[in-house]
Design a protein around this nucleic acid. Structure first.
Lengths: 135, 135
DNA sequence: TACTAAAAAGACTGTTTATATCCTTTTAGG
DNA sequence: CCTAAAAGGATATAAACAGTCTTTTTAGTA
């Protein structure tokens, strides 16, 4: 359980690739897709989501492409994952707290809150800089 | 992301209900299902899985039903969740470590391992006894 | 201005997983 | 042997996942 989808996996690969390029290099989507072995049309959707929230900057037309929206050390894995997979929610009751009290007199609720907190803390503590291969 | 399914939610409700009964009380599936508001046929499948691994004991025929397989303090939430949802695997690469090296030169891999570890630790630290309402 | 390169946006499709339900079989008691 | 209960298997529907295709918008260039 709790599995990252392909979309999330691809998202990480794609943006980590960008993070490994020099700061102002504009990369073609097609090149990124090939480099990280992801279907280009699928990666396009992912990068559109990134672009909307500023994780990457996009440029259209000739000479266009993508570059990182911020410095690699200022983008966390948590942001990347939540950008495409939605918020970390181990249980629905964390999204809508009101309806939980009733359904389970919820001693379980605080446990899921802790799970959520731990996961967010781990992913939030890792930046893209930590993920690129130095060499 | 990382959401528990209905099955997992129902599983917890059902077994916590059992844990709240006196130790040797045999409960009808139909009664449990009604008490925790879960479709009886669905809960049946869940309890079959529990039964196979000994989390609950089942008795067939007249006077049959279910009771907890061990004392409530000896069953963790982790066991319950993994029984019906499968192992905690934030990423596929944790299941088959061999194919990860290639695909991502995986600096991400150890992060997912940490996530897995934290989640398992939280869920493993909670027993059914902690989850029943005392009163 | 027209042409071309690139991303953005939206519709569409096939596959898999989730969420059940139903029916038949097995087991046990009375 | 009749009935109560769980076990097992097949089926159905809906949602999510994984991806493709086409059209539109934007921007640079001849």
């Amino acid at each position: 359980m709790m599995e990252l989808t392909r979309k999330g996996e691809y998202a990480i690969r794609g943006i980590v690739y960008l993070a490994g390029k020099q700061p102002d290099k504009v990369c073609l989507l097609s090149d990124i897709a090939e480099a990280v072995d992801v279907p280009p049309t699928f990666l396009a959707k992912i990068f559109q989501q990134f672009s909307k929230i500023g994780l990457v900057k996009s440029y259209r037309g000739t000479g266009g492409g993508f570059m990182l929206g911020r410095a690699p050390e200022q983008i966390t894995l948590l942001e990347v994952v939540e950008a495409v997979e939605g918020p970390i929610l181990p249980n629905r009751c964390l999204a809508v707290p009101t309806d939980c009290e009733r359904s389970c007199s919820c001693n379980v609720h605080p446990v899921w809150q802790r799970v959520q907190g731990e996961v967010r803390q781990v992913l939030g503590g890792v930046s893209l800089k930590d993920l690129v291969n130095e060499q």
